[in-house]
Nucleic acid binder design. Structure first.
Length: 220
DNA sequence: ATCCCGAGGG
DNA sequence: CCCTCTGGAT
């Protein structure tokens, strides 16, 4: 996976070009996780850590049928929650977190999912990445949540290289044209999931290959 | 730095 | 078999 030693940083024009093409491919930015409310979104995103959205949707179908509000989730109980999500990795920790965050939303936020990143991050199992996704998807904030896909794509392409997700997030927010800020997270995610894949990037079919700093464009 | 941890793909 | 998947808490 060789890269050029000193790839030239992306110019604002190149970044605008890049997002324009990704946006053209995928016009409507929206998560592929199934949810019907801010609460079910928080749960779905919390469950999505180190798991595929397909697997999460499979598990939340039954879970949300049994409980789609904090009150019902607490009533359902940790053991039953765990039973619903056993097919997802890290299910023990996640069941504990879903139960505890539901209880906390009731006790400290009046039963409503708080609409700030700082408050969201106080919920068990919710860190900066999950909070950013919820702020964007449920509350319309132009946040860019840096997950495994965006971290990889940002570094591999040279769009926003960084050693930590936070550093990548800051560079992305700096270089992304305002009109693409809201959808940047989603477009980068989809690009990483279906084209700029971790193991074998599909460079021959990549719409931004000519802008990319990644050296090897033919073999994964 | 380490742990958690099932399903799917190659 | 090995790697990856919308990370977070300790």
């Amino acid at each position: 996976m060789p890269r050029k030693k000193n790839p030239a940083p992306f110019t604002t024009e190149e970044a605008a070009d890049l997002f324009a093409r990704l946006a053209q491919d995928r016009p409507e930015p929206k998560t592929e996780l199934d949810y019907t409310s801010p609460f079910t979104l928080v749960v779905a995103v919390a469950l999505s850590a180190q798991a595929t959205d397909v697997g999460v949707n499979k598990a939340t179908k039954g879970l949300f049928a049994a409980a789609d509000t904090p009150e019902k989730m607490v009533a359902l109980g940790e053991d039953a929650i765990r039973d619903h999500i056993k097919t997802i990795g890290l299910f023990r920790n996640k069941a504990k977190n879903v139960f505890a965050l539901s209880q906390k939303i009731i006790d400290e936020y009046g039963g409503e999912v708080p609409a700030s990143r700082e408050a969201l991050e106080t919920l068990p199992g919710v860190g900066r990445k999950t909070a950013n996704v919820v702020m964007n998807e449920a509350f319309g904030e132009p946040t860019i949540a840096v997950d495994t896909h965006i971290f990889r794509v940002s570094n591999r392409t040279g769009l926003a290289p960084g050693k930590t997700p936070f550093e990548v997030e800051q560079k992305l927010e700096a270089i992304t044209p305002p009109e693409f800020l809201k959808g940047a997270h989603h477009w980068l995610i989809l690009h990483g999931r279906y084209v700029c894949k971790a193991r074998k990037p599909d460079c021959p079919n990549c719409p931004i290959a000519d802008l990319c700093r990644y050296e090897d464009k033919t073999v994964g």
